[in-house]
Measured scan of single mutants.
Amino acid sequence: NRRVIAMPSVRKWAREKGVDIRLVQGTGKNGRVLKEDIDAFLAG
């Protein structure tokens, strides 16, 4: 159960899209999950 680094707005975006943010690979600094990462995860 790893800790995910993400801005609150990104966490909210993931929740709205029904995405478990822990499954998303972050591409930002220090592995931070970005809004673009959520979109890419949804795109496959």
Rank of each mutant, 00 (worst) to 15 (best):
K12L: 10
R32M: 13
D37L: 02
K29R: 13
I21C: 00
V10N: 02
G28S: 03
G28V: 02
E16Q: 13
G18P: 00
I21L: 09
G26S: 04
D37S: 01
N1Q: 13
G18E: 07
E16N: 08
D39P: 02
R15K: 15
G28D: 03
L42N: 06
N1V: 13
G18F: 06
G44H: 14
R3E: 12
V10F: 02
V4G: 05
N30W: 13
I5Q: 09
I38Q: 00
F41R: 04
E16T: 10
R3H: 14
A14F: 03
M7V: 13
V19D: 00
N30M: 11
I21P: 03
W13R: 07
L34S: 08
L42D: 05
F41L: 08
R22Y: 11
K35G: 04
N1T: 14
A40M: 12
R22I: 06
A6Q: 03
R2A: 10
D20G: 02
G18Q: 07
R22K: 12
A43V: 14
N30A: 11
K35N: 04
V19M: 03
K29G: 08
P8M: 10
E36A: 15
A40N: 14
R22A: 09
G18R: 08
V10M: 03
R3S: 11
S9K: 11
R22M: 10
R32D: 05
K29L: 12
G44S: 15
V4F: 05
G31R: 06
K17Q: 14
D39Q: 09
G31A: 05
L42S: 07
L34H: 07
G26Y: 02
M7L: 15
L42Q: 08
Q25M: 14
I38T: 00
P8L: 11
R11A: 05
D37G: 00
V4L: 08
F41T: 04
P8H: 10
L34Y: 07
M7F: 15
N1K: 12
G26I: 02
E36R: 15
I38S: 00
D37Y: 02
A14S: 04
G31I: 01
V33P: 01
K29M: 11
V19L: 06
G31V: 02
N1R: 08
L42W: 07
L42G: 05
A14M: 02
R32E: 15
V10T: 05
I21W: 05
G31P: 01
K12P: 00
A40K: 14
R11G: 03
K17S: 10
I5R: 09
T27Y: 03
M7P: 09
L23Y: 11
P8A: 13
G44M: 15
K12S: 08
L42T: 07
G28I: 02
L34V: 08
R2E: 10
W13H: 15
Q25G: 07
K12F: 07
G28A: 04
L34N: 07
T27L: 03
V4N: 05
F41M: 06
T27W: 03
V24P: 02
K29I: 12
A43I: 14
T27E: 02
K12E: 09
I38N: 00
A43M: 14
A6D: 03
D20E: 06
D20P: 06
N1G: 14
M7E: 15
Q25V: 15
V4M: 05
A14Q: 01
N1M: 08
R22E: 09
V10L: 04
L23T: 08
E16H: 11
G28P: 00
I5P: 06
R3C: 15
L42E: 06
V19E: 00
V19K: 01
E16L: 14
G31Q: 06
A6T: 05
K12Y: 07
V33W: 02
S9F: 09
E36M: 12
R32I: 07
A6S: 06
K17F: 07
K12A: 12
R22G: 08
I38C: 02
V10S: 03
E16S: 12
M7Q: 15
R32A: 14
A40S: 12
Q25Y: 14
N30V: 05
Q25D: 11
I5E: 08
R32F: 06
K12N: 08
R11E: 05
A6G: 04
P8F: 07
D37E: 00
E36Q: 14
V19A: 04
N1D: 15
P8R: 15
I21M: 05
V24E: 00
K17T: 09
L34G: 04
I21E: 01
P8N: 09
K35D: 03
R15M: 12
G28L: 02
E36I: 13
L23F: 11
V33T: 05
E36G: 13
A6M: 04
R22F: 10
T27F: 03
A40T: 12
K35F: 08
Q25A: 13
A6W: 04
F41V: 07
I5C: 05
D20W: 04
W13K: 06
E16Y: 12
W13F: 15
L23K: 13
A14T: 01
A14P: 03
K29N: 10
G28T: 02
R11M: 07
V4Y: 05
T27S: 14
K17A: 11
V4C: 04
T27N: 05
V4D: 05
A40R: 14
N30H: 14
N1S: 13
G18M: 08
K12C: 06
K29E: 12
K35L: 09
K12W: 09
L42F: 08
M7S: 15
A40G: 08
R3A: 11
R15D: 09
Q25L: 13
I38F: 02
A6F: 04
G26V: 02
V24F: 02
I21Q: 00
K17I: 08
G26L: 01
I5Y: 09
R3I: 15
K17N: 15
R3M: 10
R32W: 09
L23D: 10
R11N: 04
E16A: 13
P8G: 09
I5A: 06
V19N: 00
R15P: 03
V19S: 00
R15H: 12
W13E: 07
I5V: 13
R15S: 10
E36C: 10
V10D: 03
V24I: 13
R15T: 11
E36D: 11
I21V: 05
G44R: 15
G28F: 02
K12Q: 11
I5K: 09
A6V: 06
T27Q: 05
N30T: 05
G18C: 07
D39L: 08
A6K: 03
D39E: 11
G18V: 03
L34P: 01
S9P: 06
W13A: 08
P8T: 07
A43D: 11
D37R: 01
I38A: 00
K17G: 03
V4E: 04
V4A: 05
G26P: 08
V10W: 02
V4K: 06
A40Y: 10
G18N: 10
K12T: 07
W13I: 10
L23V: 10
R22P: 01
V24L: 06
L34T: 12
E36N: 11
V10A: 06
V10G: 01
G44P: 09
E16K: 13
S9I: 07
L23A: 11
V33G: 00
K17L: 14
V10E: 05
D20S: 05
S9A: 14
R2Y: 08
N1F: 07
R32H: 08
M7T: 15
M7G: 15
K17Y: 06
A14I: 02
T27K: 05
V33R: 01
S9C: 11
K17M: 14
R3T: 13
D20N: 10
Q25R: 15
A14W: 03
E36F: 08
V4P: 10
V10I: 06
N1E: 13
D39F: 07
R2K: 15
R2S: 12
I38K: 00
D39A: 08
G44A: 15
K17D: 02
N30F: 13
L42V: 14
A6I: 07
R11S: 04
V24M: 04
K35A: 06
L42M: 11
G26D: 01
G28H: 03
D20V: 04
F41H: 09
V24H: 00
I38M: 02
L34Q: 07
V24A: 03
E16G: 06
A43H: 12
I5D: 08
V33L: 04
K35S: 05
G44F: 15
R32T: 07
L34R: 10
N1I: 11
E16W: 09
K17W: 10
R32G: 06
K29Y: 12
G31Y: 05
K35I: 09
A40E: 10
K17C: 13
I38V: 14
K12R: 13
E36H: 13
A6Y: 04
A40H: 12
R3Q: 14
R2N: 14
F41K: 04
R11V: 08
E36W: 10
A14C: 05
T27A: 03
L34D: 04
S9E: 12
A14D: 01
D39H: 06
G44D: 14
I5H: 10
R11T: 05
A43S: 12
G44W: 14
D37C: 01
I5G: 04
V4W: 05
V10K: 01
V19T: 03
G44Y: 15
G26N: 02
K35R: 12
R2Q: 13
R15F: 12
R11Q: 07
R2V: 14
K17H: 15
R22Q: 09
G31K: 07
